[in-house]
């Protein structure tokens, strides 16, 4: 495992993504709400480019105490990214599949040194 320079944080805007290749590995690096996240770009379903699709807030359905549904709504805090091939939806902060947390994309550590952003791969 080595720290690989990706870019300067000042050049990386919120909502932006970089898809990088290190050897055989392809990694998607996200900047979301001033935090960095890096995941394998190979979807665990059929191998699609998991990090290159839509980012969209998690859809939730809340129940009242009497178990009646309040309908569907977008989460205020949880953001997902979606594999564009078939719609496999992963949590931005953990890389876990929304419906089955056991399905989890390989996560790479991000190291920040000054203005430089490194991926540990």
């Amino acid at each position: 495992m080595a720290e690989q320079f990706v870019c300067k944080s000042s050049e990386f805007k919120n909502g932006e993504r970089q898809i990088i290749r290190i050897g055989e590995e392809e990694i998607g690096v996200f900047k979301h709400e001033d935090e960095y996240f890096a995941y394998s770009n190979f979807c665990l379903h059929q191998g699609g480019p998991a990090c290159e699709g839509l980012t969209i807030a998690r859809v939730e359905e809340h129940l009242r105490a009497d178990k009646t549904s309040m309908g569907l709504s977008f989460s205020e805090k949880d953001m997902n990214f979606v594999c564009p091939w078939h719609g496999y939806e992963y949590d931005m902060r953990t890389g876990a599949h929304v419906a089955d947390p056991k399905v989890r994309l390989r996560k790479y550590d991000i190291v920040k040194k000054g203005d430089d952003i490194y991926v540990v791969a």
């Binding site: 080595a2 690989q4 320079f5 990706v6 870019c7 932006e16 993504r17 970089q18 898809i19 990088i20 290749r21 290190i22 050897g23 392809e26 290159e52 991926v119 791969a121």
Partner: peptide, 9 residues
């Protein structure tokens, strides 16, 4: 191993 930037979105 070199870091190759495939694309910036």
């Amino acid at each position: 191993q070199k870091v190759e930037i495939l694309r910036k979105i």
